[in-house]
Write a protein that binds this DNA or RNA. Structure first.
Lengths: 245, 245
DNA sequence: CGGTTACTTGATGCGTGTCAATGTTAGTGG
DNA sequence: CCACTAACATTGACACGCATCAAGTAACCG
């Protein structure tokens, strides 16, 4: 019961805060069927090649999307916090072209495609909000492309730490100068395209430069402006300001 | 007149081929207002920071999206062929977080946001098709992230050439073993995150390996299977197979 | 308490960037 | 038709960022 309420709350809160929905829209969202599951750290939630029949709403915990190369190398494509639906694209792209994994223990609500499809088919305002979510996803992908293509290892790590700081704060999961990021250095490396060993060196350099401290799953900002300047971080791409009604 | 017909044709053909639309849906698409413009090579169609009031449908030519860094470095985010709408996301994300440029002379049809918004608000089937387009866009971004993060320069170039071969062929713009790609080596480098000079070296190596020949704006495939194997190219991420009705 | 996982540090080498010089091609005007 | 130019492409020399290998430390946990 507890978890069910939380799951619905996440989605409804998100939808309500995002735009002015009619009472009918809200009611339709509330009536979405779903199943809550608790998943241990490390498991694949959906796998590359799967044809899932439901979408996964993150209720709590940290989730990532990734792809594996033939040689065993891994590239993390995105991180997803509570309230997000990382595989919303599976509603329209039947076959998964990547995997979804739990980085921490995760509580997730699974919503059947059929119900979601009916919802977006009959409620254009809800569809617009969800569509917009997938577009912000794509905007973040674009920014990652810029980082991977044109920024140094140190800038990439700094940029990612800035992005996550802003996103964690936006959902109330970050304090003023620190947030919890339960991620290994290997995972960081797989996200920014460098080796785990070099992550260690870069984090040391960032610490020595007095910019940020990453240790024990906690990120502590020492000099936010310096971090922003180093990584050329501009939060516009996150499109966090609410759209005009 | 000629161009007007062509623009409508591109869009209607695309929508019809993508799914079963009702006659009313098709009629609604046909009644979209738009303005056709011919743009010279090199111009920015939309700029980072803009708040456009219309979307750009590529009727002919080659378009790219890109971002500039403070140091003047450029990262190309995507290429767009005839029939695509590269800035469809501006329907829901008001402020552009990147720019859109004409790589070749381009003929484009501009469709007002208001009309598009009305269309997707009243025609869920049309909305679903356009939404799906933006999701495929995102899938391509993901694959680029993998390349930039985890592939060598040679693999990245080979992968891009594979991707474009498949996409050009899908819209009937490629022969069996060659296609026209009017792109400079600097632009290639900006897309795959390497210097223009190294592009030259990589293209020589690809030629010497008997895989592909890039010269004078034409890509000639010498050994498709070898190219696919080298770059680990798997076209699934392009989601070219039509969705089931 | 032994084994596992995560992290750190140093040594070495490769891949790619950068700089500089040269070659090639297409376009332009006399 | 040729001289001139500008843009694009090629090649070599050198430097540097990061990968990789190897060894060692620290924290955790059955």
């Amino acid at each position: 019961m507890e978890s069910s309420i939380a799951a619905h709350e996440r989605l409804v809160t998100k939808l309500e805060s995002d735009s002015r929905l009619s009472d009918e829209d809200r009611e339709a969202v509330r009536q979405l069927p779903f199943t809550v599951k608790d998943l241990p750290r490390g498991v694949d939630i959906v796998r590359d090649g799967d044809r899932p029949a439901e979408c996964c709403l993150v209720v709590s915990g940290l989730v990532c999307r990734y792809k594996l190369l033939l040689g065993g190398k891994r590239q993390i494509l995105s991180f997803h916090l509570a309230g997000e639906i990382p595989d919303l694209q599976s509603l329209f792209l039947k076959r998964m072209d990547h995997s979804l994994a739990a980085i921490t223990p995760v509580r997730a609500a699974f919503i059947p495609h059929a119900a979601l499809r009916a919802l977006v088919g009959s409620r254009p305002s809800v569809a617009a909000i969800l569509w917009r979510e997938t577009l912000i996803d794509a905007a973040i992908f674009r920014e990652w492309i810029v980082g991977l293509g044109r920024r140094t290892a140190m800038q990439r790590v700094a940029h990612l730490l800035c992005e996550l700081a802003v996103r964690f704060r936006a959902v109330g999961l970050a304090g003023d100068h620190h947030y919890t990021l339960p991620v290994t250095q290997s995972e960081l490396g797989d996200a920014v395209g460098i080796s785990n060993i070099h992550v260690s060196r870069v984090l040391r350099d960032l610490r020595d430069a007095g910019l940020v401290l990453v240790s024990g799953g906690t990120v502590t900002t020492l000099n936010w402006d310096g971090l922003v300047e180093l990584s050329e971080f501009d939060p516009d791409y996150l499109h966090l300001t609410r759209p005009e009604p």
